[in-house]
Amino acid sequence: MQKSRHLKDLEAESIHILREVAGQFERPVLMYSIGKDSSVLLHLALKAFYPAKPPYPLLHVDTTWKFREMIAFRDEVAARHGLDLIVHINQEGVDEGIGPFTHGSAAHTDIMKTQALRQALEKHKFDAAIGGARRDEEKSRAKERIFSHRTADHRWDPKKQRPELWQTYNGRLSPGESMRVFPMSNWTELDVWEYIYVEDIPIVPLYLSAERPVITRDGMLIMADDDRVPFEPGETPQMKRVRFRTLGCYPLTGAIESPAHSVAEIVDEIKAARTSERQGRMIDKDQTGSMEKKKEEGYF
């Protein structure tokens, strides 16, 4: 299958943005979260600078609750491309025993993800963090700029965003400030899957359907990926043919029952889908306007 015209357009726009980051910032970093969007983002970065390697390291903020397959995949990808991979864990959070089962999704995400990210950015003095977020994921993202400014305390102010015209990006910063950059802003979930298909991009196998042990909680199918799951009385994992539409911390990521065991089948499934991608994300549902609030506080 040929790469379609619109995927070529999207690819070129993303490469343009990735090169702008290299041209405008002193210490950029590519946020690598191991998911499908990160896989595409990394693929685009490899293309943008070919035959050189991307002029920035990868950063993974590890909450210590990721699926084991994700971690294995991450290390394998970094080794294969010979890339500099920085893994950051919020050690204070680990010491306090923070986890989604004991502290709830909101506290866990805040401490192990949002705060951990801040720590990593500050520790390495990164001035630009490139992420794979897309505007079609969630309503508040629809208004976010491609070069999205963060104050010195990492806050996003949706009312004070810089106007962004043409493909001219203003990456100027005052001391302590930083930029989040989203080269895939204009991609949709379907674009991502079609691109993975035509470009033959490796992805974590969890996206593909297989028999996996899951329990049902609050209407979500949660995979018991290790022995930290506190089962409630009578709760035993059932083997089900499931896959994941998004990947995050395993206790917070719901699986869907699906027979799609190839990328081509996923593309078909999404074309026919009637539920949106973030449906499996517990953290979006905490409260109305939930993502907007998290972002103002510095969530990616």
Binding site: Q2, D200, S262
Partner: peptide, 30 residues
């Protein structure tokens, strides 16, 4: 699953079939 198996399985074209209804090369730009 070992790494080699993971790679084989995760490679999009390792399993499945061609997408039938994908647009051709003469479509309109965005």
């Amino acid at each position: 699953m070992n790494e080699a198996a993971a790679r084989a399985k995760a490679s999009p074209k390792a399993a499945g079939r061609e997408i039938q209804n994908a647009p051709g090369g003469d479509e309109m730009p965005i």
